[in-house]
């Protein structure tokens, strides 16, 4: 009998599966969603550069059969700028956790969105610093218990999508691992978008966030928690700010055209 091989396997770096993610982690799903989007669009994998910084999500690129950079915390967008300006023909995709992108990498994030750098950022939001053992992150909800907030977090939560829209991103949407169809569709849109595109994917971390903040290491329970707190943008419109507190609004927040960043150069004066 012929062995069945997953058709997406061709996109995986030789021999690098199984991946190192914890059982139940959303990163494996997101890796798969991304590959489905790429496969569906029939993109040339040779012309894709994937970048990860440090963290669980940042490890997604090391499994992809693309040119990849990895291993420095928070600097993904700085690398991406150098590559993209020198090789505008390449598609640059960044996989970053919430800590990587908006905590240590927050400044780069603000300015790359402001400039409308032509890259796609897939931000996996698992509400904590997972790889280091479950510490509080800018995305952790108020009063959540984490390894560094044993009495509950007393900091407000950062809405990364709102921030991106304000700063000047030109495609922004938020979905969750529990919504694969919408997520894949959003990734496809982002990959086809010229300009700074951000997809925030809410994802379950049963190992750390689940255990400390939700008191469960059951993947399904953590997913349900995300799902119960999620609300579609269209429905959220009818609710007050108070009612939307600690809820995750899902949907597309912006999709528009604006000239992309090219640096100071006479090389390629494209019409945007």
């Amino acid at each position: 009998m012929k062995e069945k091989i997953n058709p997406l396997r061709k996109y995986i770096r030789n021999g690098k599966l199984p991946h190192f993610f914890c059982p139940g982690c959303g990163c494996g799903q997101i890796l798969s969603y991304f590959l489905r989007a790429v496969d569906n669009l029939q993109l040339d994998f040779k012309k894709i550069v994937t970048i990860g910084g440090v963290g669980c999500t940042a490890r997604i690129p090391i499994y992809l059969n693309t040119d990849s950079l990895h291993g420095v915390h928070g600097r993904t967008l700085a690398w991406a700028t150098g590559i993209k300006l020198y090789r505008p023909d390449l598609k640059v995709v960044i996989f970053a956790g919430d800590g990587d992108l908006v905590s240590i990498g927050g400044n780069h994030f603000l300015h790359a969105t402001r400039r409308n750098l032509d890259v796609t950022v897939i931000m996996v939001n698992n509400f904590n610093f997972a790889m280091t053992g479950g510490q509080v992150a800018p995305t952790t909800l108020f009063n959540s218990v984490t390894m560094t907030t044993p009495y509950g977090s007393k900091e407000n939560t950062l809405d990364v999508c709102k921030l991106a829209v304000c700063a000047g991103a030109t495609y922004v949407s938020r979905w969750s691992t529990a919504k694969p169809i919408q997520t894949i569709k959003a990734i496809k849109k982002a990959l086809q978008h010229k300009g700074f595109s951000l997809i925030e994917i809410l994802s379950q971390c049963p190992t750390n966030f689940g255990r400390y903040a939700l008191k469960t290491s059951d993947t399904e329970e953590v997913l349900k928690w995300i799902e119960n707190k999620s609300i579609l943008k269209t429905k959220a419109k009818k609710l007050s700010e108070q009612e939307l507190k600690d809820r995750f609004v899902l949907g597309e927040f912006i999709h528009k055209k604006r000239p992309v960043f090219q640096g100071t150069t006479f090389l390629k004066e494209e019409d945007n």
Binding site: R75, A78, G82, R87, H108, G263, T264, T265, F266
Partner: peptide
């Protein structure tokens, strides 16, 4: 025929030149 960028900080400077260098 080159590209100049003034970044947001020195971390941007160093990493963006490394990115470009790896692209050739």
């Amino acid at each position: 025929g080159g590209i100049f960028v003034q970044g947001e900080d020195e971390l941007f400077s160093i990493y963006s030149i490394i990115g470009a260098s790896l692209a050739g």
